[in-house]
Nucleic acid binder design. Structure first.
Lengths: 193, 193
DNA sequence: CAAATCATGTAACCCGTTACATGATTCT
DNA sequence: AGAATCATGTAACGGGTTACATGATTTG
């Protein structure tokens, strides 16, 4: 019950396996060949993580019988894993997640399709946007306090951070609009699972 | 001589201590109260890292004699530490750094003032820009391959990544222009150390 | 003075990295 | 058939997180 907190990698694995059952190598390929690349595709990260998730009951492994010598483990979500993923996907974006920069906010969003309702997704984007706006307020404060003419590089670096967040904020608005637009024209309005 | 690779945190510490000598708590305050916040300000990260750097000879600790019971260690760069920092700051931006997202590219830039010449900084920004442009090309490819009407969230998430990088790219151009501009009007054109 | 907070550090645990290892499949 | 590559794992090591601990300083 009382879920011990998982790493971002582990949630990513739950999300991938939740889309369709996978082996460790399938995961490797995804991390190595898609924009999910900031996760390490090294086997030393992936296989132990899958085992851990299986050990605590969030994944289950079906042994592939085709090859005897080196069995392929095809992982799929258990109901507990499904539940854990669901709970995580429903978490709104926090300041800490933003600052830590592990990519959790956008990972959750990218996995939300089909598991969250349209309203929940829009609500999530709202929390994303608000957290960004709040943090930007903080950073604007720094520009006035600590912008010194010497240390130009430090100042410019701060502006880079600000610009990034501003661009992210604009994206949340755009994404929300896109979701509303897509929903109007399509008949499959997908309730959650 | 053959420097074993340091973590981003350790380079950040070298950079901070290189600006002015600091105690562990000074570092803690910087991480806790400035936009460098994505580094953990927890003592369990900072103090051991400072010790490591001292042990391998990149930092030296001067014991503060004011208080006997719990001596404050004020760290400063050794010449080896200065050298290691210098070498690192001269490294151009690589694709791997960009993807791993540990913030090394912007950290280096923010510490470059006074240690790199104007030309070196502009050259660094050039490598930053080129690496961003190359990676963006890759991502543009994904938008054509894998943009499926279902999985809207995944598609939108990809666009967020693209927008972020585009904004970062624009910043490199802007920052280069700012540096050129500042250099024209000021008399202290600071050669490296 | 007691309580809270500032300031400094240590220890256990665990995840990810790096390097190694080995079985299957494809290519020449 | 040998070489390269695909596919699947394990082990050692090290750094960061979390939690704990303790000395100094301020505040009620």
């Amino acid at each position: 019950m009382s879920q011990k907190k998982l790493t971002t990698l582990e949630y990513a694995l739950l999300g991938l396996v939740g889309i369709s059952p996978m082996t460790g190598y399938d995961v490797h390929k995804v991390f190595a060949t898609t924009p999910l690349a900031h996760f390490s595709s090294s086997p030393g990260a992936i296989y132990p993580a899958l085992r851990r998730l299986a050990r605590i009951g969030l994944l289950e492994a079906r042994l592939d019988t085709a090859r005897e010598t080196r069995p392929r483990r095809v992982y799929s979500l258990t109901s507990a894993g499904d539940e854990a993923l669901e709970v995580w996907l429903h978490q709104l974006v926090t300041r800490e997640e933003l600052i830590r920069g592990a990519g959790a906010p956008i990972l959750r969003f990218s996995l939300a399709g089909g598991r969250l309702t349209r309203e929940e997704i829009l609500n999530y984007l709202g929390s994303y946007q608000k957290t960004l706006a709040d943090y930007l307020e903080e950073l604007y404060g720094y520009t006035q306090e600590t912008t010194s003419p010497e240390n130009l590089c430090g100042t410019l670096a701060l502006f880079q951070g600000i610009r990034s967040l501003e661009s992210e904020l604009k994206w949340t608005q755009w994404a929300a609009a896109e979701i509303k637009r897509a929903d109007r024209g399509s008949r499959n309005s997908r309730p959650s699972r």
